[in-house]
Design a protein around this nucleic acid. Structure first.
Lengths: 142, 142
DNA sequence: CTATGTGTACTAGTTGTGATAGTACACACG
DNA sequence: CGTGTGTACTATCACAACTAGTACACATAG
């Protein structure tokens, strides 16, 4: 489910955050799905519970999950993060366009690239639906 | 020329690298332009020469500058970095597109956004030409 | 109620990286 | 040779990431 890459220079907690962010945005994890407990995931990944806790706090701050004391952590609905995420990624997209122009790439080429990429997504439908679910309400991990 | 933002969480040497990258990509610094010496820039920014050295080594590794022992550091030609940079930014662009699709944005909307941004660049012509040059061959800093 | 699983908070310590400080050496140029 | 340059090296400090261990509060099942 969650893998840690020790070759990666980024801190572990950041990798955990990023991984869950992907799973949630792509729809692999749905609203109110339960995610592993701090302790369970820590054992699973052979790292310290505090590191997972830090990751979960960050995910909560970003609006991706909510916490119920004594019960666990659960995935928030799209309305809690979709707008912010879209704004952010849109900003990244614009920055890329500016840089490509600076690098001498033609505007038409950029637009074409994007159009091609959009079509590719439409055909492949991304990997969200294919991935299936992971840990639904009530089906707690063994 | 180069400013350091101490509010920024990124290390100083990384900020220096990023700033020079921008100046070079945008054409403010041209091929064979001389950039400040390790010691001069260190004094200028009130930081340690070793930090600048680290930044310059990274810039050389990335192909943005070349070093001549005893003379200084100079900007490389576009051919040394343009291809790699374009490939990298293009990859970022595609990732953004995929994420926006996952976030539920319509493909048409994405393409429109890009087209609009391209036009904006075409009108403003970015800020490359406006910035002028900084430190040409032979005009060493005082 | 108790036992268990959960999130939360706190202290203490280790490790790695960024940054500083200082020194020394090699090369280019006038 | 003297100056300005890049390069290399050691030592030290500060901070972030991570680990280790403990303690407490809450929810649920028995």
């Amino acid at each position: 489910m969650i893998q840690i890459n020790y070759q990666d220079k980024r801190p572990i907690y950041e990798q955990v955050v990023e991984r869950f962010r992907q799973l949630i945005v792509k729809g692999v994890l749905s609203e109110d799905d339960k995610i592993p407990s701090v302790r369970n995931l820590a054992i699973d990944l052979s790292i310290n519970p505090n590191t997972i806790q830090k990751a979960y706090q960050e995910l909560e701050r970003l609006g991706f999950i909510y916490t119920v004391k004594g019960r666990g952590n659960f995935v928030c609905g799209r309305d809690r993060w979709m707008e912010d995420e879209t704004t952010e990624v849109l900003q990244q997209l614009k920055t890329c366009v500016h840089e490509l122009i600076s690098l001498g790439m033609q505007g038409d080429g950029i637009v074409d690239t994007v159009r091609t990429e959009v079509k590719k997504c439409a055909n492949g439908k991304d990997d969200a639906a294919a991935a299936g679910d992971y840990n639904r309400k009530g089906s707690d991990a063994t």
